[in-house]
Simulated assay, not measured.
Amino acid sequence: MNALAPSASRWHQRMWGALLVKRLPVIGRPSLSLEQAPQGLFLLWLAFMGLLVFGAALMWQHGLWHRLVQADPTGLTIVIVLLFLGCSVWAGMRCWALGLQWQALQSGGAMATAEQVSWAHDYLQARGHAHTDKSILLQVLSDRAHGPQEMAWWLNGIQLKLGLLGKVIGFSVLALELGRMDGFDPQQSAQMLKSLTGGLGIALLTTITGLAANILLGLQLMRIDRFADGLVAKILTLGEAQAIQSSVTGAVE
């Protein structure tokens, strides 16, 4: 089903975080058994976010968040964390929307409610017309399933780039401090080491934060993409079955 996704949903797999996530066990499967339950994808997302909240609470208890803010005067780590939180909330909303489409498909695929437009209903209804271009229908269905994730994948890459930007800034600060040194004074060694390690701390912390956010958000988006692949495959299978049934019925008549 990867061939059905837009081109933007393929280039994201070349990013480091997505490449690592893709190689994790069972992550690449189109659909897990839990996800096939009503709103199973959203429940899986809630469980994942619960683990992250637990880890964040432990970091707060040990004062790691305060140290992280103090060690990075550029504020890039805070920007990365806020960007990750915003994208994760959007991922939860997307999981809920895809879950509604899965429920509509499981109920027959031919019913559309006033609150939620059924992709299966629209696809099957348009496919029933004799002069409909099926390739256009496939593109529309694929864009509905994968299009909204493109911006999320782009923001996921921005997290990594912000981490690398922090590394460049940190090493630039380190280089400037080294350039100001005229000589080694044993009496000022403590202050000199503090100045040098400040730039190194910025470089390391922003890079680690960017990599961690990239991988954790990539886990969420990869499962959303795989679930969308399974949803599109199910709708296409239902459309082919409907077409075969119509042809058999027409032949009998």
Results as ranks from 00 to 15, higher is better:
Met181Thr: 12
Met181Val: 12
Asp182Trp: 10
Asp182Lys: 07
Asp182Tyr: 11
Asp182Val: 05
Asp182Glu: 13
Asp182Pro: 01
Gly183Ala: 02
Gly183Val: 00
Phe184Glu: 09
Phe184Cys: 02
Phe184Ile: 09
Phe184Ala: 04
Phe184Tyr: 10
Asp185Tyr: 11
Gln187Lys: 02
Gln188Pro: 03
Gln188Gly: 01
Gln188Asn: 12
Gln188Cys: 04
Ser189Lys: 10
Ser189Cys: 09
Ser189Pro: 02
Ala190Phe: 15
Gln191Ser: 13
Gln191Leu: 12
Met192Ser: 06
Leu193Ile: 08
Leu193His: 07
Leu193Trp: 10
Lys194Gly: 13
Ser195Ala: 09
Ser195Cys: 06
Leu196Val: 03
Leu196Ser: 11
Leu196Cys: 01
Thr197His: 11
Thr197Met: 13
Thr197Gln: 14
Thr197Leu: 07
Gly198Leu: 13
Gly198Gln: 10
Gly198Phe: 06
Gly198Tyr: 03
Gly198Lys: 08
Gly198Val: 01
Gly199Thr: 09
Gly199Asn: 11
Gly199Pro: 09
Leu200His: 07
Leu200Lys: 01
Leu200Cys: 04
Gly201Ala: 14
Ile202Trp: 01
Ile202His: 06
Ala203Tyr: 07
Ala203Leu: 00
Leu204Gln: 04
Leu204Cys: 03
Leu205His: 10
Thr206Ser: 13
Thr206Leu: 08
Thr206Gly: 03
Thr207Asp: 02
Thr207Leu: 12
Thr207Lys: 03
Thr207Trp: 03
Ile208Phe: 14
Ile208Gly: 00
Ile208Thr: 02
Thr209Phe: 04
Gly210Asn: 06
Leu211Pro: 05
Leu211Gly: 01
Leu211Ser: 00
Ala213Thr: 14
Ala213Pro: 00
Ala213Trp: 05
Ala213Leu: 06
Asn214Phe: 02
Leu216Arg: 02
Leu216Cys: 14
Leu217Met: 08
Leu217Trp: 06
Gly218Tyr: 00
Gln220Arg: 04
Gln220Asp: 06
Gln220Ala: 06
Gln220Cys: 00
Gln220Leu: 07
Leu221Asp: 02
Leu221Val: 03
Arg223Ala: 06
Ile224Thr: 11
Ile224Gly: 04
Ile224Gln: 13
Asp225Trp: 12
Asp225Arg: 08
Arg226Cys: 06
Ala228Tyr: 00
Ala228Trp: 10
Ala228Met: 05
Ala228Asn: 13
Asp229His: 05
Asp229Ser: 12
Asp229Val: 08
Gly230Phe: 15
Leu231Ser: 11
Val232Asp: 10
Val232Lys: 06
Ala233Leu: 11
Ala233Tyr: 11
Ala233Asp: 14
Ala233Ile: 03
Ala233Lys: 12
Ile235Pro: 11
Ile235Phe: 08
Ile235Ala: 02
Leu236Glu: 12
Leu236Asp: 01
Leu236Gly: 03
Thr237Lys: 12
Thr237His: 11
Thr237Glu: 15
Thr237Asp: 12
Leu238Cys: 09
Leu238Tyr: 09
Leu238Ala: 14
Leu238Asn: 01
Gly239Arg: 08
